[in-house]
Design a binder for these strands. Structure first.
Lengths: 103, 103
DNA sequence: CGCTAGGTTCAAGTATGCTTGAAGCAAGAT
DNA sequence: ATCTTGCTTCAAGCATACTTGAACCTAGCG
């Protein structure tokens, strides 16, 4: 998680969600320093959300379906209500106020 | 986003995913300073992921379904592949290497 | 080979966010 | 009113992450 917490990285994912792109094309859509883009691409790569392949002089990035699947699985395991899931809003067992404020 | 990027906040959401809890009960499940818990609860509250209601001396927190719905909607709008969605891995139009390395 | 273009990495400064301790506020108990 | 409990807020220290500039590496070209 946290890899999607940066607006630039979210924008990168947005570009790549339309298909594979090389760094120079990403940079054409996102006006940002080459350094910075490389840094954020690395963060996303280390988060397993992106994969990179070199072709000649260019490096092509694409989204990693397995990484996103793992992300959603981890969130689900942590108890985060994913889209389409019901959100529990009822009262759970309480220990600190046991029977003090009976409804 | 980013509100779910902290392990403690993720744990808080996990506890609240089982239903409404007061702060002292959350604290009973997560060994953390009262200050710190209050801080992270505020972050989640300001992210619209939690709602708080005071009842007597206790403050009860619960997940906010609308907030989570808005979060997933925002991610979808940004192009993030949500669970169950296909991930585009094909080639998109390229401008920098137009026709140079024809497959 | 030397040279250039596309990307990456390194080391620095700055900003952001987390953590801690003390003070503050509200509501019930005395 | 005074005290205690449950929780929040404030201010300061510390850690982390972002940003910038320079050096570096690889692939292709002359």
């Amino acid at each position: 998680m946290g890899a999607l917490a940066d607006p630039l990285r979210l924008a990168i994912v947005g570009v790549l969600s339309r298909g594979e792109h090389c760094v120079c094309d990403i940079r054409a859509e996102l006006p940002v320093a080459e350094n910075l883009l490389s840094y954020h691409l690395r963060v996303l790569r280390e988060a397993k959300l992106l994969t990179a392949t070199r072709q000649g002089r260019w490096v092509y990035y694409r989204l990693d379906p397995d990484g996103f699947a793992a992300l959603w699985a981890a969130l689900a395991a942590a108890g985060v209500p994913l889209p389409g899931e019901a959100v529990a809003t009822g009262r759970a067992g309480r220990s600190c106020a046991e029977g003090e404020v009976a409804p």
